[in-house]
């Protein structure tokens, strides 16, 4: 029975998202990429990417694409999170955990404020 309820929920969610898409202006797209090679996964990239999804959803942020890529060759800095805003340089956060991931969403994605101490050049 839970299955049917759950699918009905998905339909409701879809309707809401369709409505939001109609309302949304074509604003800029920010890209957040989590590296998920073997090194990233072992270091906790899966926990990081779900924390980012949760935080984006909780705050109702639109115009953010979450993506993933393979090993970036910086295995000892994993998990890595890259934030790319059009017209600005890519920012790479290192040693990210769930807590840091949530803060990256609230500070960087919402307020546009880079958390310099956690980044590398």
């Amino acid at each position: 029975m839970a299955r049917i309820d759950s699918l009905a929920e998905l339909d409701k969610l879809r309707e809401r998202l369709q409505e939001e898409m109609r309302l949304r202006e074509g604003g800029e797209e920010v890209k957040v990429v989590v590296t998920m090679g073997t090194c990233g996964i072992a270091a906790g990239a899966r926990e990081v990417i779900t924390a980012i999804l949760e935080e984006i959803s909780k705050r109702g942020l639109k115009g953010v694409t979450v993506g993933q890529t393979g090993c970036a060759g910086l295995c000892h800095y994993e998990p890595l999170v890259e934030v790319e805003r059009p017209g600005t340089e890519k920012v790479t956060y290192v040693h990210v955990d769930e807590k840091k991931a949530r803060e990256i969403v609230s500070k960087h994605l919402v307020n546009g404020q880079v958390i310099k101490e956690w980044t590398i050049k």
């Binding site: 998905l10 879809r14 998202l17 369709q18 898409m21 999804l53 949760e54 959803s57 694409t65």
Partner: peptide
């Protein structure tokens, strides 16, 4: 079932 709404939408994935 999503009729064009991307599966990648955070709300959908959650």
């Amino acid at each position: 079932r999503l009729r064009g709404i991307p599966l990648q939408t955070p709300e959908v994935l959650l």
